[in-house]
Design a protein around this nucleic acid. Structure first.
Length: 255
DNA sequence: ATGGCTATGTAGCATAGA
C-alpha cells in the first residue's frame, strides 16, 4: 500500500498536476492540504474519473484538507475531537484497514504572534487526541504539513533559522511528544540523501538553490512502522510550471 | 537591504504562507 501527502497550495490551480501525479505514482491514498476552496468547489468529478474517492473539508481562501483513496473511504471524521476550530485543518478516514489522518498544522507566522500561540495550543490538542486515536487504531498513519522541521538536518541553514517559527524548541518539543506516543517519522526509518527537504520558498530561487525545509511528514504507528518498506520525497512536481511550494512525500506499507 | 514570490479576494492592494 502506497500512501502520500502533498500540500498543493490551491487545489484549483494544482488540479492538473495532482491528476498527473496520481497517474504516475498511483498511490492508494493521497492526503492534500491547503485546498483553499469551499466544499462545493471541490473537483470531485475529475478525481473520481481518475479512480479516486474523496473525503474533504474545505473553506474559503485558507486551509482545507482532503483524503483521496483508490478504495472506499469509511468513517470519515473532520477536525480534532473535542477541539473547536473554525479552521479546516484535519480530516480522517479508514481505507483498506488503515486509519489515515490528514493534517495541516498551523504555520505560526512568528514566535511573538498570536498565531504562534494558536499553533502551540493546536498541537497540544492534536497530540492529546492522537494518543486516544492511537489506542483505538493500532494501524494509524498521520500525514501532512506539520510546519515543523524536527531537527537541524531538516533545515538548509540551521544558524539562520535558529529560534524561528518552524524550528523553535516548543514546536520541536510538540513533534517530540508525538514520537513519545510511539509515532515514527517514516522518512527517518531509512537511509536518506543529505539535504532532503519538502518545502522551498518561491522567492530567491529557493528550489534551484535547495534552500529548503523538511516540514511535511508521514508519521506511523508502531505497528505500521514495522511494515513500512520505503519513504521518499518526490521532487518532480516542484519542477513543474506553477508548482506548489511543497513537494509530495510517499511511504510504502507491506500489509 | 527584512526585500525577494504565489494565491486569494476583489478591483488597487491587503493578507497569508513558511
Amino acid at each position: 500500500m502506497r500512501i502520500a501527502s502533498w500540500n498543493v497550495n490551491s487545489l484549483k490551480v494544482r488540479l492538473p498536476q495532482v491528476l498527473d501525479w496520481l497517474a504516475r505514482q498511483q498511490p492508494d491514498a493521497l492526503c492534500l492540504q491547503e485546498l483553499k476552496l469551499e466544499d462545493p468547489s471541490f473537483p470531485r468529478a475529475a478525481l473520481e474519473a481518475a479512480g479516486y474517492s474523496c473525503a474533504y473539508s474545505g473553506q474559503k481562501t485558507y486551509n482545507g484538507v482532503a483524503i483521496l483513496g483508490r478504495s472506499p473511504l469509511e468513517n470519515v471524521v473532520c477536525g480534532i475531537e473535542g477541539f473547536e476550530d473554525p479552521q479546516r485543518r484535519v480530516i480522517s478516514a479508514d481505507i483498506a484497514g488503515v486509519r489515515l489522518v490528514c493534517a495541516y498544522v498551523p504555520n505560526g507566522q512568528s514566535i511573538d504572534s498570536d498565531k504562534y500561540r494558536y499553533k502551540l495550543g493546536w498541537l497540544a490538542a492534536f497530540c492529546a487526541w492522537l494518543e486516544r486515536e492511537l489506542a483505538r487504531y493500532p494501524r494509524i498513519a498521520v500525514l501532512g504539513d506539520y510546519n515543523i522541521a524536527p531537527e537541524d538536518r531538516d533545515v538548509h541553514d540551521p544558524k539562520a533559522w535558529e529560534g524561528q517559527v518552524l524550528v523553535s524548541e516548543a514546536e520541536r518539543d510538540a513533534f517530540g511528544r508525538l514520537a513519545a506516543l510511539g509515532f515514527r517519522d517514516s522518512f527517518r526509518l531509512f537511509e536518506q540523501p543529505e539535504k532532503a527537504y519538502t518545502w522551498w520558498d518561491y522567492r530567491m530561487n529557493g528550489f534551484k538553490r535547495n534552500l529548503g525545509l523538511r516540514i511535511d511528514h508521514i508519521l506511523l504507528s508502531p505497528e505500521l512502522a514495522t511494515r513500512c518498506t520505503a519513504c521518499s520525497i518526490d521532487l518532480e512536481p516542484r519542477r513543474n510550471e506553477r508548482p506548489s511550494d511543497h513537494a509530495p512525500v510517499l511511504a510504502d506499507l507491506e500489509l
